[in-house]
Design a protein around this nucleic acid. Structure first.
Lengths: 250, 250
DNA sequence: TGAATACGTTATGTATACAATAGCTGGAGC
DNA sequence: GCTCCAGCTATTGTATACATAACGTATTCA
């Protein structure tokens, strides 16, 4: 077939992986649904080999599940899975913060973190916060968490945190969106910012236990807010990963 | 070529993955070395497609690293990477123990754990412990940790712990071998067994914080012993994953 | 003599053809 | 009428051929 358009700027495997991930997170592919390779070939534009590579990678990422008899299906998650994933990431970030505090961090390394902190402070001065500012907050928050993770200087830990964040609802920015609809949104962000401030202070003063504790509390706050957001089911379309939640669960 | 022997009992992909992992852990492939697909095809007996799938999976497992210009190389680890990985797994197991304690576990579910405990007690009655008994200990210990992980009833956490254990030196049985050469071997095992006993007790009494703390201490003990074992470099051949340690490091 | 370029070789990335299996449907027998 | 078996179809697993890019080497020019 000469009709196949080939984009040579990125590898076919990466292209297929991105396209399939989009389909998964947008809900085009439903949880529990079996993924047809041939269908994926048509929708992604890549041939079967790179599509299969992409499927294997997505399985390792945790978005797909291998079917024993062959092929893959879209993984389904319960609300419990989601809150556990957030707490899991919080625990890992806690360890990262402790490593950073115990191993020592120079003032120069801490600078970008403090800039993030100041930028978020600036955003939160708006009451109530605008949609644009909230969007900026999400970006800055993700940046803060990524920088903090790096401070641990532990490649295995950084890798594991990245893997834990692969599940979209477990990423720092993935579920924050859903909170924006809550009446307590502003207050939640202010408390979160306080956590950020404490963890930096703890790292500066080499207080490992305190740094770890505050990051875990940070995650627990997120879990509580996620539950709240799931209760008043308003603006849940802001939580893209909701497409992956089992329809019939507790 | 008609000379290719095809074993149809397991998939070629799995066969290739196992064969390559063996080569990695046995040191046939050196850290930093580039992996040639064609060479892997020859040594594994599978064709290029399943070999490539196996390489992708091994990369996701953390044993290989993708080269930007294409292909894969054997990942190299520092001693710091190894001790961080053990502490990382201990942290996750601590969370699992806490989940188990907080969520409640029936006496029936705890039974297999207690059987493990008793079987290990029996082994440790030998002073000094025999090589065979030590080998049994390694198996039982791995079983104990696996069962404990299951008690968390948290699929995302179980999955993450499995991933953290993929690095051979981070698995419950992976590094224990190296300790057998230490003069304090017996004492170390007794202390570890005490940790096992405490975590079961804490789970039974629904003391989440205590359950978590003891598992983390358990991992910290393992880190200390690993360091000891690496200092007196006797019997290090018992640590198969040593093949993955960078030769020139701190 | 050294450096740069061009060409060739080798290895990876991609596509497709072929093989085998699992699931489904239809027919036949009890 | 229901169940079981057989054959077919559709989909995945595997193999290989082809394309392309990268690296190394050799030759030439400065």
């Amino acid at each position: 077939m000469a009709e196949r358009e080939v984009d040579r700027s990125v590898s076919q495997t990466v292209k297929a992986q991105l396209a399939l991930r989009d389909q998964l997170l947008s809900g085009t592919l439903r949880p529990g649904e079996r993924i047809s390779e041939l269908q994926a070939v048509e929708t992604t534009g890549a041939s079967r080999t790179p599509v299969r590579m992409a499927l294997v990678r997505l399985e390792e990422e945790g978005l797909l599940e291998a079917i024993p008899s062959g092929g893959f299906m879209v993984k389904a998650f319960s609300e419990r899975d989601i809150s556990d994933s957030i707490e899991l990431r919080g625990t890992l970030e806690g360890l990262a913060a402790r490593f950073a505090a115990e191993r020592g961090v120079s003032a120069r390394e801490l600078e970008p973190l403090k800039e993030c902190l100041a930028a978020i402070d600036e955003l939160l001065r708006q009451v109530p916060i605008s949609v644009d500012a909230f969007s900026s907050y999400v970006t800055l928050n993700a940046r803060f968490h990524a920088l903090l993770t790096e401070l641990s200087r532990s490649p295995p830990l950084i890798r594991q945190i990245d893997r834990a964040s692969a599940l979209p609802f477990a990423s720092p920015s993935g579920f924050v969106m859903a909170q924006s609809a809550l009446p307590e949104a502003q207050q939640i962000l202010v408390i979160g910012q306080e956590h950020h401030r404490v963890v930096i202070d703890a790292i500066e003063n080499r207080e490992g236990a305190r740094a770890e504790a505050v990051m875990r509390e940070h995650a627990r706050l997120a879990v509580r807010n996620l539950r709240l957001a799931l209760r008043n089911r308003t603006h849940l379309d802001l939580l893209p990963a909701l497409a992956l939640i089992k329809s019939a669960n507790d």
